[in-house]
């Protein structure tokens, strides 16, 4: 791409672009990091094959039991070996942001700064901004290709049993963080964060350790706020608070909270009057407090996608901010 701007004189063997042959900075960045990039792409390909195979096995079994209306009540016992593969795969996929942050993001600039090769590249006829752009661009592209593929594959594998909370609860990281746009955004944010950490610390090993801490922190904070992304739906009943009168929630709904509701609409804790010794005394207690029914807050499965996009949007905005910081800082100091 850049070699075509050369002056006609003195260029004895300028690289010409033929087909998919990389040139200029693209070639350099790919060549420098090709081991890492190929590892990521190869691992993605292997995962693809494995997931396709696993899903085929699982659907075979499910078809056999007449899913989604299993003939046998005890289907979940036999299904366990399929569902455990699904959950362990989701744990594995959940590690991707941390792994790529530590092994791809942190060394990306730190090793160039540590070994002086940043000086080498910037003393060629390319600007630091172009070098940074290419480096971050190709890295982001590889990360995106890999995580988009794995996200789609896992969602496809999980889809048949998505409504079955006992297999994987959609609100847990095992589902929420490895499907849709979330794994892409989480991984990009962690990787770019690792790049920034490496740029500031200028030492590969230290940067990797610190990035590991950063990636873990991101996971913890993300897990803490994950469910705040949805708009909880409240359902109320007025048929008393017996167990049988508990409102029916949609399949796979995630119950955020439950209350007793009084005739005046006041919410009381559901442990109100639980200390009464006899059922009769409890009824009297509830009656004296004018408890008329349940008020339940929940998140339906239908919100999952919008919550994921909202969360991913926030993460991508943060990623953009960190990227801007890398450019502002690195434009002058990246040597």
């Amino acid at each position: 791409m850049s070699t075509l701007t050369s002056s006609p004189a003195a260029t004895t063997a300028t690289g010409t672009t033929r087909g998919l042959r990389l040139s200029g900075l693209n070639w350099l960045v790919w060549r420098q990091h090709r081991a890492g990039f190929w590892t990521i792409l190869a691992a993605t390909a292997l995962c693809t094959v494995w997931i396709v195979y696993q899903r085929a096995q699982m659907t075979d079994y499910l078809n056999g039991i007449g899913w989604p209306h299993p003939k046998d009540e005890n289907w979940s016992q036999d299904f366990h070996k399929y569902s455990s593969r699904l959950t362990s795969a989701s744990y594995g996929l959940g590690l991707i942001p941390v792994l790529l942050g530590v092994f791809l993001g942190a060394p990306l600039l730190a090793s160039d700064l540590e070994n002086g090769t940043a000086k080498l590249v910037t003393s060629q006829s390319v600007s630091r901004v172009r070098w940074l752009t290419t480096k971050l661009g190709i890295t982001a592209l590889v990360v995106t290709v890999s995580t988009v593929a794995l996200s789609l594959l896992f969602a496809w594998w999980w889809e048949p049993v998505k409504k079955e909370n006992s297999v994987i609860d959609w609100t847990s990281g095992s589902a929420f963080d490895v499907t849709g746009p979330v794994p892409v955004a989480l991984t990009l944010f962690t990787v770019i964060g690792g790049v920034a950490i490496g740029m500031l610390l200028r030492r590969t090993l230290v940067a990797m350790v610190v990035t590991f801490g950063f990636a873990t922190l991101v996971q913890v904070v993300w897990g803490y706020f994950r469910m705040d992304l949805g708009n909880t739906i409240t359902v109320t009943t007025h048929h008393g608070v017996a167990d049988s009168s508990f409102p029916k929630l949609p399949d796979a709904a995630y119950q955020v909270d439950q209350w007793f509701i009084t005739g005046s609409g006041k919410l009381l804790s559901w442990s109100t009057c639980a200390d009464e010794q006899t059922d009769k005394a409890r009824q009297a207690c509830l009656h004296s407090k004018d408890v008329v029914g349940w008020s339940v807050d929940y998140l339906p499965l239908s919100q999952m996608s919008s919550m994921q996009w909202l969360g991913a949007g926030i993460l991508l905005a943060l990623t953009a901010g960190v990227t801007a910081f890398i450019f502002v800082w690195g434009r002058k100091r990246l040597v």
Binding site: T3, A9, T11, T12, V121, S125
Partner: peptide, 19 residues
Amino acid sequence: FTVEETLRMGRELNPGWDQ
């Protein structure tokens, strides 16, 4: 990088490169 690749880097990144 090999020596050849190092020189290729020079070629790829410098317009007036003299191989």
